[in-house]
Design a protein around this nucleic acid. Sequence first.
DNA 1: TTTGACTGGTTGCAAAAAACAACTGGACAA
DNA 2: TTGTCCAGTTGTTTTTTGCAACCAGTCAAA
Lengths: 141, 141
Amino acid sequence: MRNCKSYCPINQALEVFGDKWTLLIIRDIMFDGKRYFREMLGSDEKIASNILTDRLNKLEEFGILVKTKDAHHKQKNVYSLTDKGIELMPVMIEIAHWSTKHRKVSEKDRIHVKELVDGGQKLQDKMQEALRSELESVSNS
Amino acid sequence: MRNCKSYCPINQALEVFGDKWTLLIIRDIMFDGKRYFREMLGSDEKIASNILTDRLNKLEEFGILVKTKDAHHKQKNVYSLTDKGIELMPVMIEIAHWSTKHRKVSEKDRIHVKELVDGGQKLQDKMQEALRSELESVSNS
DNA sequence: TTTGACTGGTTGCAAAAAACAACTGGACAA
DNA sequence: TTGTCCAGTTGTTTTTTGCAACCAGTCAAA
């Protein structure tokens, strides 16, 4: 650990995603189906390309995602969540759920989160399974 | 909203706690029973006093906590979580749960988190209720 | 009533991180 | 072969963080 302040679980998590951008990148992959650098660069929050590069590299180092070459376009990289990343889904959903209660959120997202929460464990398992099979398909190439 | 990048629920949450310190302060109050500035200053992660001042003020502005005068010591402030803060408990527990699976965590904390997770909704409700009654008692003085 | 430790902070400066804009070389499709 | 798209890189400015020293009010004990 580079600059590990403590072995408290909250702090250990913050060393991975305790900043303004990392969870947005994970959101892009987990919920918005984004897989390429340019797609993430185009998200509403307008992340700078150097920051995106930096965070993708860090997430790869942490084992949250893997970078593979696109089969059809030599220059494109495909970013996929690992198990470690996929298992952040409950965290993401709890955060989103809290935000819909206590923060100003777009109507579209409010509905999206409600579906996710109402879908319960069953929906979540299904979504995680979909991400896992994707991971499997990129690792077999 | 000062510099609201988007109304995505994840981003809206990050505007509140998307940094290395805020969730540690919430942890101190929520799980470690800390109520005073100096107590939080003394946590393992060694936050600087100017950063602590800044974050406590921001959390108060966001309505996550309230600052009240201590009844027995004129100089001391008591920091208590509001409902909005208390309802971050599921988020905190999911984060901690993820960390115990995927990050290096102290044995003491691992056990603590396991108890919290195994305790289920019932334990969580009880803990939230305790924090709420505390809030009530400071607001009646 | 003095002393000394403790209270919640503030201040100034150095270092690190983020934001911004311009740019790069390889790849692809027409 | 030309223009567009690709994942980044580079250099500069601005913002945030980290650090240490400091402060005045307060409290408990001598």
